[in-house]
Design a protein around this nucleic acid. Structure first.
Lengths: 330, 330
DNA sequence: CTGAAAGCGCTTACAG
DNA sequence: CTGAAAGCGCTTACAG
């Protein structure tokens, strides 16, 4: 792939160009105190002239650390994931670490493979922004480097730290908001049966049960979304409010309502979940549940740092979401 | 960071557990033909029992290749970038390569630093989905590994291949669509003076000049967006159609129009650029210019592959966009 | 079919 | 202040 002719210059090339030993090149380039000013200059000039760049692979091998944190995301197109990763990146700088990202592309096998690959790459720590990685792969990874999972794992893996958002509480908060606004017929619409959606449904059911005269009404868009939405909106007992399992689902509900001439929020209040950018762009703007994604990323990085400092016991943190009230709930 | 007690097992540990030489462990684990079935089994069992994982850093050092392609993106939250990266990833698999992503966070310094870091990491090829990297850093990188830039570079760097979208043609296509629809007073609204936006403006001006009785009208949202939008929409000579430099700007124009009771598309047609997810979610749905982002990613990977096969001459490709007509243009 | 040796490009004690 | 040597964990000819 690289011909010998244009291979990258090494420390040995710099050494012979500067007329010194390779040890001295290494010391000089890393700014060691005990190198005379004149030779340091000579070495740096030689390195620049050759276009020398340190080989991080060789350095990592001898030092046993790469100064790299791996971040694996289920789906980069999803703003939730990219925001969490942004938080990780901002926090990593303070620890002198760089963040390399592996993209899972919504494929559990690919995500699990990235866990393996990141460990093979010798990252110093690993943050998995996904609940789709195999617990066994995570446990194996945790034996080699600290691992934090952001998301609701179906099954805990040994020595793996975690951060989850309080989906039960967030959904309950949204329902209570609708009840305060006078709504009594409130439906929950979901496009997923993954753990996070299930937890939100549980929060919904709990909060609905608290308020008298409410019958929990759950609509799944899993099989035939158009039919499910029709059943919801064209039925005699149409709800006056809907909580969706996420913003995308909420927008679908709003679109279906508007298509039928049902006014939002007057005839139907809609609340989403995740506070994605879309929530403030649609009309009416969407009331939704916000998770502090940036903060979650920072915390994940901080939890890795604690492990670097010697923490041995597992740590599991739950983050509280907040309601953002906008136009779609009246 | 890792105590000797729980350090990762190496090939030597596996060798002594299986009672063979480390050479044989290496051969067996990589499936070499010339290893007897029984010893192969013994070695694999020993490796599994120890939880052995190959150290990719050591392998990369001896093989001189990492099987890694680096992809650097300006802004992962921008769907354009994540789609291009998706295309790169899908194509990389066919070449047995994995894609590690570096996030530039809209910071030119960070992007340029990632170019350096990726080369230090010994990636076999580098795709920079950004026009913000320093040409000098790109040229240095290209001396070590093939480099493809996706985007409109302000200045060409030696030995660096590139892919750009035909922004001039795309914008002209959008304007001709509006002219066909009968519009004569067409404005261009831009929130940026970066090269891509400038090229789109040029395409707009060219197409407007083709049609008689049109006076190009350009509105910049750079300084005071609210005032600029007011000048556009509240003036006596309000345009009947607007081309925006991207979808986000188009949605801002639509929102400003709706706030004033101006009906879209009846009283004002709006066309965006980029065909982001948002374009099909807003109401009315947004007519916009689509770039084949996935295809661009595939092509970038293919261009790296050509370099691996020995191509020496630079290659620069221009990709043609397509118009997606939706509700906002009537 | 298996083992001993050299080497990838660095860093890091250890001498001098 | 500088150099020679060992070693990080692998792969790869080369012997046997």
């Amino acid at each position: 792939m690289r011909t010998p002719a244009n291979r990258r210059p090494t420390i040995v090339d710099v050494a012979s160009a500067a007329g010194v030993s390779k040890s001295l090149v290494s010391l000089a380039l890393r700014g060691d105190e005990g190198v005379s000013e004149t030779t340091r200059m000579r070495i740096i000039d030689a390195a620049d002239a050759l276009g020398y760049r340190s080989n991080a692979v060789a350095r990592a091998l001898v030092q046993g650390r790469t100064a790299l944190v791996g971040a694996i995301a289920t789906d980069l197109a999803n703003p939730y994931h990219s925001e969490v990763i942004g938080g990780i990146e901002r926090a990593a700088g303070a620890h002198g670490l760089e963040v390399v990202i592996g993209h899972g592309q919504r494929d559990p096998r690919r995500i699990t493979r990235w866990v393996d690959r990141m460990i093979e790459l010798n990252v110093d720590g690993l943050i998995v922004v996904s609940s789709w990685a195999e617990p066994s792969a995570l446990a194996l990874a945790a034996a080699a480097a600290p691992v934090v999972v952001v998301g609701r794992m179906p099954q805990q893996a040994r020595d793996v730290d975690s951060i989850v958002s309080d989906d039960v509480g967030g959904a309950a908060m949204a329902v209570r908001h609708l009840i305060e606004r006078g709504h009594r017929r409130i439906a929950f619409v979901t496009s997923s049966d993954r753990p996070a959606a299930m937890a939100r449904q549980l929060g919904y059911e709990t909060a609905v049960a608290e308020a008298d005269a409410n019958v929990p009404h759950v609509v799944s868009l899993a099989d035939d979304a158009a039919r499910a939405l029709a059943a919801l909106l064209d039925g005699r007992e149409r709800p006056t409010a809907v909580l969706a399992n996420n913003d995308v689902t909420a927008v679908r509900v709003m679109d279906a309502a508007l298509d039928r001439g049902i006014r939002v929020p007057d005839q139907l209040a809609v609340v989403g979940y995740d506070n994605t950018v879309m929530a403030s762009l649609v009309r009416p703007t969407l009331t939704t549940v916000d998770q502090p994604n940036d903060e979650i990323g920072r915390l994940a990085m901080a939890m890795l740092a604690e492990r670097f400092e010697g923490r041995r016991v597992e740590r599991h943190v739950t983050i509280s979401p907040a309601l953002v009230v906008r136009g779609s709930s009246g």
